[in-house]
Design a protein around this nucleic acid. Structure first.
Lengths: 195, 195, 195, 195
DNA sequence: AATGAATGAGCCTTCATTCAT
DNA sequence: TATGAATGAAGGCTCATTCAT
């Protein structure tokens, strides 16, 4: 066990992630993952007992990795507006499904698994973290005179709900880049002070 | 044929709708619907060939029925702010899943059925219609001096994206009424002129 | 459903009984029964959900059928010794597994399914019924002067335990007819009055 | 090899015995035993190739150990009635499953493995030995005037069949201590001379 | 000797779909 | 039209057994 197993575990999670990205959560079977991994049925069960277990493992891993991506840059000498743009650019990718991510799978998973232990809900945590980062950006930007924003926290929340809305609209009814740009621009224009 | 068949068709759709509202789209089987309808397996197949067919039929029906619910009131003597509140109240119900609707099922369905024929995409049409109605409300309200809104169309879009975002957040991570109220209030405060 | 189904149900039970008689209980799979019945996998599940369910159905059926086989003859003009011999002859068949019965399967089943609801335990009921019948035979025979038996109930119990013992010995270590005869003769000799 | 291996062999048999006592024979898997032994899968296969092999090894070992437990006491100055009581007390424990023994497992094993090589059948040997011991007890007791028994061998056989019957009844339909006592008392009363 | 990862066969169960009535 | 029995494919899970280390 140990090192070798961990490696294979990671390998399985990586392959499985591709499968989830392609098929969502509900329609993925253990067989799908077995085939994607090119291992035996029994082999997979050595590591994970169900698609749910695999899915949760991927979410956890992702959560750990993402930690403090943007947050670290706060307080640097870069302009807050730039950081905000960086943040929105990332979100835009997610909205437009540029990088085949697990968005759909995640939605499907949490549709069916209502938040029992609310603190355990990764989606919630992700959302809260995003709001937190945005709030700090808005606050700092306001202090520096780059933004005009009376209620940064609320504004941050508003931004995130809109972005979530676009994510879902993009996946269910299709959105193109210019539509997203237009909307993001409008959102930002509410507090951005043009030079 | 004819009338009698139509009646049964409607009956099936009504029962099926309850099932979809309860279980989403992907996890509903023909068996589930057969049982909900208390008809025979073969009987169901006389009317519909798959869950997808049934689901689409429900969506179409719904679309026809909803048509011009609110739109009809526009132009009446009631205040636009009141109409807006009525509209938001309806949306709030959907966000909080007060009336067990097919929200989740619809998301699941359109996740998997990417908008091929875009004009056929009902979600898109619903969204566009909602934006259209909101736009008219905002325009009329602005004319009447109830709102201050420079770009009603864009504002309407923004509102709808936020609302979509809340819908999804409510279903996946849980939202309570006060959270929704706070957000809606904030959104409206951007253009509502207080007396 | 109804008649037709009942017929098939019986058919399945009959085939399954052969399987249980051959393989015991624990080693019988749904697949075995499917094959014995020459029906489809799903077809079997239409009638029974598990080997246990099938097994219990067979036991119940058997229990109903056996009812009052010997008991009916009591009180006739035949000699009690003759009736006793008839009874023992039946038991001898079971001991020697002359008719491939479900003895082994039944033991295996009740080994694993400890008597929760004791009154429901068919083995117990069968045993009690046998003891009851024997008791009546002994009582009546004593009255008629064919037997000398101070405690018919206890003697009946003793007989049945010995017979049970022979059943198990026959199945596990092998017994031949003369061994059984010798033992039964000895048992009977304890209360039989020779002419 | 040699000593060390033997030690491990014994260790495995001891753990396996517990498993068999708990689950019978048929439902025990190699996996169960591997887990009970806390050794590796491959490790177990170095010593035994199947559950059957393990089970037989346990039976053999047991047989060797039990040898002449009671037999040794015969001829002492103790009363034969006392020795008989000792013997019956042991049997009572087995009947009531006081010490979790391999009774059920043994039955299950011999149900499926019909006595091919009859002399090899351990159950048979155990039974014969028990009968032999009982016979000697009865003979000696009769000589000493403690018992009145015309046919000790046959009486011994009868006793053992009854005891076997109670064992099986206890395991399949449940017997309590007083029921066993009553039956044993009745059996003994047939030849015991009260002072 | 010993390990334990890996394989693949085998059984379980559920459904979509067909078809004789 | 309507029924529901029947089929068989698909996916889930567990183990006996092997084998590289």
């Amino acid at each position: 066990m140990g090192e070798k197993s961990d490696q294979k575990r990671e390998y399985i999670l990586d392959r499985a992630k591709e499968v989830f990205a392609r098929k969502g959560f509900l329609q993925v079977t253990m067989k799908d993952i077995v085939e994607a991994c090119k291992i035996s049925r029994g082999g997979l069960y050595l590591y994970f007992g169900s698609t749910e277990e695999i899915f949760c493992a991927i979410l956890s891993k992702q959560w750990e990795e993402e930690d403090g991506d943007l947050a670290s840059n706060l307080g640097e000498t870069v302009g807050m507006a730039d950081i905000l743009m960086l943040f929105l650019k990332e979100q835009k990718k997610l909205i437009l499904c540029k990088k085949e991510d697990m968005g759909r799978a995640t939605y499907e998973y949490f549709f069916a698994h209502k938040p029992k232990d609310i603190s355990e809900n990764i989606l919630r945590n992700q959302f809260k973290t995003a709001v937190h980062i945005l709030t700090r950006i808005l606050e700092e930007g306001t202090i520096r005179g780059e933004f005009y924003c009376e209620n940064p926290k609320q504004e941050a929340r508003n931004l995130m709900y809109s972005i979530e809305g676009m994510k879902i609209c993009s996946r269910t009814m299709g959105l193109n880049e210019s539509q997203v740009d237009r909307e993001l621009l409008y959102l930002v224009s509410g507090f951005l002070i043009e030079e």
